[in-house]
Simulated scan of single mutants.
Amino acid sequence: MGINLQKGQRISLSKEAPGLTKLICGLGWDVAKRSGGGLFGAFSSVPDYDLDASVICLDRNDKVNDMTNIVYFGNLSHRSGAITHLGDNLTGAGEGDDEQILVDLSRIPSQIVKLVFTVNIYDCIARKQDFGQVQNAFVRLVNTSNNQELAKYNLSGSEYKGMTGMLMAEIYKHNDEWKMAAIGNGVKVNGLQELVKTYA
Rank of each mutant, 00 (worst) to 15 (best):
V187C: 01
D176W: 10
R60H: 12
A200T: 00
A17T: 12
Y199V: 02
K15N: 15
E159C: 06
V189W: 02
K33R: 13
S106D: 15
R10Y: 01
D66Q: 00
A42F: 15
L23F: 12
D104S: 13
I24A: 06
L195K: 02
N4I: 09
G19F: 11
V71F: 04
K7P: 05
N65I: 09
H78W: 09
D62H: 03
G157I: 03
R10M: 11
M166G: 07
G41S: 12
Y199S: 01
L90G: 06
Y122W: 08
N61W: 10
T68M: 13
F131W: 01
S54P: 06
F43R: 03
S110E: 14
K63G: 00
D52G: 03
V113L: 11
W178S: 07
N69K: 07
K33Q: 14
N136L: 05
R140S: 14
G26F: 09
G8A: 08
K114F: 06
S14A: 15
D98Y: 08
G157H: 03
A137T: 09
E16S: 15
C25G: 00
N120I: 07
G28K: 03
S156T: 02
I171V: 15
E170H: 08
S110N: 14
Q111Y: 14
Q135L: 15
L39F: 08
Q148V: 07
V196S: 08
N75D: 07
L195C: 00
E159F: 00
